[in-house]
Design a protein around this nucleic acid. Structure first.
Length: 578
RNA sequence: CGGGGUGUAGCUCAGUUUGGCCAGAGCGCCUGGUUUGGGACCAGGAAGUCGCAGGUUCGAAUCCUGUCACCCCGACCA
């Protein structure tokens, strides 16, 4: 392709709207433009990259035995009402009413669509397993789109759904997909970490996330110091802390703490440290109010709490409920005398390990000091449980191994769904003995746009993007660096040779100074550049430079195309060989 | 949805506190010339209802009211 014929509008200045490097470079390199908050137009170079990623994903899905379909983006609301996800998804679910008054959903994911299909088509165990996927636009009306394409309202997702008669069969496909995912991300040139993930409200039986470590990631990865285990922070377990040696403590005493509700405020007021406090949070489900106790410097992990209320949605209680249960305003709840006033009390191990602490007094504007867990409030009894309900923090261990932390971008997730959707949408089959059973399901997602953004986050320098060969918009750029006709001619010849060899090559035939061409080539991140200048031409040589390396190499002009084509093959092979 | 911030030329921004002599700069774009291996130089030029709608005023980018959009933090998120 000739640069003069392309539409690659690069920009010098950093766009004001872009905060993180991948977002900045995607705009600066002319890959995309914003249409509205969280929605982007992909320009030709960006589109080429997306297509390359999609093709890698497609090849690996097909290799793993999944078959490609397409399910409509616009789906009837009734389908979503059957699974209850019209409610569960809340405001994030995009919907609109059509001219007939029917409500429609803009698909944020497609369990419903594929399970509907299975419910219509699958009758016998002989049809199983079945593994179907699509690569299609998804829409989520995010509260706050951000970080360019890392959290956008509209995005491309590869989503696969598998149907099985047995747990073993589900597990086999799950592992096939797991390995296919490893291949996908490796081929895209990404460094990634596989973490154990929470199955959340979906009540599934297992899940892994594929995460690209980088500063700008929204997810937190927790891993053991020996690298043997890794989790999403939502899932990461922690060892109970050692019980602190008992101290002589007087009976609990009320202290007047007017309007001092937050942890920081209490600390400042009582000259205490956050770890000396016991935080009491009041939660509710649709049928019960319960309390969670964590140390003042710890955070409740809602996913861990959720394990105790499978199938229910938990949320922080409203002011009115808190007032009713504790008899005090928000900020003054405490465990002393709380048993019996709430359905359950979950006490984090770290709280149980405390010798003495400060808590709310269940009385507005008062706290209690000298509170000794076990003495002043029970650590066991009906509805009372000491357990792991907080986020891991620096210094924590698991099985005695130190836990370390990293930020990351989630680019894929595999998930054993169980029968949640097949039961609700009646995707049943008859087994060998004629019994009617719901299909066991797995679902498997990959964020196509996120792969692109993470590749940039992970591979760039001060000049621009450095694409892995497998997903680069072009493999080679030929840059005539002088306006002379013979230089241009030599470049043309190399360009045609490369085209004939099937190399994806861009010829920078623009009437511009060499510096501008170099800047654009670097910004765009094309892996190999062949430069022709007056001097090198006089010596019969062309210069070959890898985007990822500083050094250039002089090659005989007659061999330049061959040389570059070989390098392309080597670089592709290196990424594809796994 | 709560908190903070920003809307002025295609882009990045100054000007708003203290209303008028204030429609500006750099980059980009167009024309001509010189230049030609790391975002060239000179000369000339086009380009903005100052987000939008009201209001105050002799006079509004600037003050007031409303509204919209965008960005950041938080809450939320298979």
């Amino acid at each position: 392709m000739r640069y003069s014929q392309t539409f690659i509008p690069t920009v010098k200045e950093v766009p004001a709207e872009a905060e993180i490097i991948s977002h900045q470079l995607m705009i600066r390199a002319g890959l995309m433009r914003k249409l509205a908050s969280g929605t982007y137009i992909y320009l030709p170079a960006g589109q080429r990259i997306l297509l390359k990623v999609m093709n890698i994903v497609r090849e690996e899905m097909n290799r793993a035995g999944a078959q490609e379909c397409t399910v409509p983006v616009v789906q009837p609301m009734e389908l979503w009402q059957k699974t209850g996800r019209d409610i569960d998804y809340g405001e994030t679910l995009g919907k609109f009413r059509d001219r007939h008054g029917r409500m429609n959903v803009l698909s944020p994911t497609a369990e419903e669509g594929f399970t509907y299909l299975a419910s219509q088509e699958i009758q016998s165990y002989k049809q199983l397993p079945l593994n179907l996927y699509q690569i299609n636009t998804k829409y989520r009306d995010e509260f706050r789109p951000r970080f360019g394409v890392l959290r956008s309202r509209e995005f491309l997702m590869k989503d696969a759904y598998s149907f099985h008669a047995t747990e073993e069969c589900l597990h086999k496909t799950y592992m096939d997909m797991y390995h296919a995912y490893r291949r996908v991300f490796a081929r895209c040139g990404l460094e990634f970490v596989i973490v154990e993930a929470e199955t959340g409200e979906m009540g599934g039986t297992g899940s892994h996330q594929f995460t690209v470590p980088c500063e700008n990631g929204e997810d937190v990865i927790v891993y053991t110091e020996d690298g043997q285990r890794a989790w999403n922070i939502e899932k990461a377990p922690v060892d109970p802390l050692p019980k602190q040696p008992p101290v002589r403590a007087d009976a609990p005493a009320e202290v007047h703490t007017p309007s001092v509700g937050s942890i920081e405020a209490v600390c400042a007021f009582l000259k205490a440290r956050p770890q000396d406090l016991i935080k009491t949070l009041i939660y509710k489900t649709d049928e019960e109010v319960f309390a969670v106790l964590v140390r003042g410097d710890h955070e409740v992990n809602p996913e861990k709490v959720n394990q105790f209320f499978v199938g229910h949605h938990i949320e922080l209680a409203d002011e009115e409920t808190i007032q009713k249960v504790t008899g005090a305003a928000v900020g003054f709840a405490g465990p002393v005398g709380l048993a019996g006033r709430v359905g359950r009390i979950l006490i984090d191990h770290a709280v149980a390990a405390m010798a003495v602490g400060i808590t709310g007094a269940n009385k507005t504007d008062y706290h209690l000091k000298n509170v000794v867990p076990g003495r002043d409030f029970p650590l066991e009894g009906p509805g009372i449980q000491v357990c792991d309900v907080r986020n891991a923090v620096a210094g924590d261990t698991w099985n005695g191994k130190k836990l370390l932390f990293k930020r990351g971008i989630e680019v894929g997730q595999v998930f054993k769904l169980g029968t949640k959707y097949s039961v609700k949408l009646e995707a049943f089959f008859l087994d060998e003995e004629g019994r009617r059973k719901p299909c066991l399901m797995g679902c498997y997602g990959i964020g196509i746009n996120r792969i692109v953004a993470s590749a940039i986050e992970q591979s760039h320098d001060e000049w621009g993007i450095i694409w892995p060969m497998t997903i680069a918009p072009w493999q080679v750029i030929v840059t005539p660096a002088a306006p002379d006709a013979d230089v241009m001619e030599a470049a043309e010849r190399i360009y045609r040779e490369l085209l004939n060899k099937g190399v994806e090559v861009l010829l920078d035939d623009r009437d511009l100074r060499a510096g501008v061409k170099f800047k654009d080539a670097d910004l765009l991140g094309i892996p190999i550049r062949i430069t022709l200048g007056k001097n090198s031409l006089a010596e019969g040589k062309a210069e070959v430079k890898l985007r990822s390396e500083k050094d250039k190499q002089m090659v005989e002009i007659s061999r330049a195309a061959d040389f570059a084509a070989e390098r392309v093959q080597q670089m592709l092979a290196k990424l594809n060989q796994i």
